[in-house]
Design a protein around this nucleic acid. Sequence first.
DNA 1: TTGAAAGCGCTAACAG
DNA 2: CTGTTAGCGCTTTCAA
Lengths: 366, 366
Amino acid sequence: MLIRVSGGGDALLDPLANADDAVGRRASTSEDVARLAGVSRPTVSLVLSGRGDRIRVAAATQQRVFSAAEALGYVPNFAARSLRTRRSRVITVIAPSLENPFFAEVIGAVKDAATARKYSTNVVIARNGREEASAIAHVLAGSADAVVIATHFAGNLDALRQLAKRRIPSVVLQQVGAGFPIPSVAVDLEMGGYVATRHLIGLGHRRIAHVTPPGAGAGRRDGYLRALREADIAPDPALIVETPNTLAGGSEAASALLAKPATAPTAVFAYNDQLAFGLLHGARRSAIRVPDDLAVVGFDNTVSAAFSNPELTTVAHERNRLTVEMLFALLDGAAVASLRQVVPVALVVRESCGTPRTERVPIQIA
Amino acid sequence: MLIRVSGGGDALLDPLANADDAVGRRASTSEDVARLAGVSRPTVSLVLSGRGDRIRVAAATQQRVFSAAEALGYVPNFAARSLRTRRSRVITVIAPSLENPFFAEVIGAVKDAATARKYSTNVVIARNGREEASAIAHVLAGSADAVVIATHFAGNLDALRQLAKRRIPSVVLQQVGAGFPIPSVAVDLEMGGYVATRHLIGLGHRRIAHVTPPGAGAGRRDGYLRALREADIAPDPALIVETPNTLAGGSEAASALLAKPATAPTAVFAYNDQLAFGLLHGARRSAIRVPDDLAVVGFDNTVSAAFSNPELTTVAHERNRLTVEMLFALLDGAAVASLRQVVPVALVVRESCGTPRTERVPIQIA
DNA sequence: TTGAAAGCGCTAACAG
DNA sequence: CTGTTAGCGCTTTCAA
């Protein structure tokens, strides 16, 4: 049951009602404000953009402008302003998904820095290469003054080159080919894979799986293989499992890996925390205890990693902070130490990888 | 070590180099394309917007325009186009955070529907009322053709009224006061709180806590209290705990509630899944087993709820689907059945609330 | 089938 | 201290 609080307020809910109110439908313009305040349009612009404050306009005039703008609910038209100034004061972040909390964290970091500098932040989801291309085209069309590209779809090199050519401050969160003309902040994925796997080997594991989305770059896997090689463990192709980059994908990978006890791994290095959380779930479904029967290591050190059950051992990095620093240095036109940063990694040891399992290490001496 | 792939490509990384390339710095305009193709600007516009296809322009002319645009990497200026057409083909979603996966899911739903209709989706994070007001002002400035407001900061009623007055298709994901002139899709929070609590009571629990962020609306709590009242359980103020709306907040609330075994609850109804996940973590930290020693129920049925450990019982709803339907109905100018939808809820029973705990139910009969 | 003219709303430059 | 003039790049008439 609806109760009318103020008479007729509900009428606005009917798209056809209030035809007589049509006067309010069109946004008011600086012309309207100027007329009401008895000044000219440039004066309105000056006052409302705050530049009339010390430099020029009389206090009384300013007051009239403010009142008029207030009364009319005036908001300067964004398109007109950015057409004229050639700037939007918008920063766009392009990400492949928001479900993966890692991206939520990058975005949050950029947003906070942007807000502090009076930029709006505008997040665009690009689920594939085509959507990424169209998001970049939108930036090239002038919809943003700077862009962070957190996707990793290959094949849009032309679009990236355009960003560089136009000198639009842009940061790509991925390793880019040497010689490719766009700033990047990339995590040292190979080293991440290496330290994660090495830690598991150090705990006594020999059968270590790697769970990864299909089509992922080679970085983490190369580090994983290097650690195995150093320990004289022959890589088992059956222990490298490709699965969709989702919680469900991780859960299914665990079921697959743990189906036959004879061939099951005693440890898994996951491509990222999200897959690792899926693995924790799948292991439990298979009545495999983590870390007692299976050690799990993730990647990214998302906030959730400290709150999962068990808490997740994972590879941490400071990509977010460096991304923000580089982006705003570029926007300020400041010198940037290196335009191709590689962020170091560090292992954060929590519960999911357990303590050394000496009982499983065959004693080789004597 | 950097290896130059193509000669000089790296030079673009130096902001000061390539001064001679300055010709490429300014975006090319439809004027440039027209000149290169040997046609006029309106022809370029017609061809590239696809309307020249059947209606007017000769095939050969079209081909010349396409080639010229391609060669120049032409992208129509967004500000100019939307200034002229008074439309942006952008849909904005305003959300309070992306860390909470519930919002990521709403956004994803809107984005997929928008993409299918050739709208761009533009996510804006508003962490407080001021940021929310500024995000709405941006929409009022013409930056988007429609908006979904998933925040719940009170006090921006003026801004909402402006959206209504300007007939900008807008959907608020919250209960709005009856008579307030803006379409809304709200979950039946009271009923959600009721069914969750009632389920816990049915399992034999009597000491049931409610964990909620400070300043949250009364909806869920009212339902919680109604269920208690119906079961003749006197509400205990000490069992209603306010805590920040984060994983850490949930974890700390669990520690606080479980500190003294004498007064600890045997069940908790959490404000949302995120807090519930924090509770699961905090319970484990306190060596309290879920569901054996503590039953937990969440709210929202986020994807993660099916993958937590233990899997989370939670209140589900279909707000996302309804939101998308209403938004596009408004955009299409179609009739909308009701502009103030209340979405029904359903309890999804998983592991975290356990099975009936008959041992704790005092037998009242005989 | 195409070109010429006009104007969206704003701000920057300059004149008064 | 304030008003006049002009133009950002696009699309939509209208005329040819």
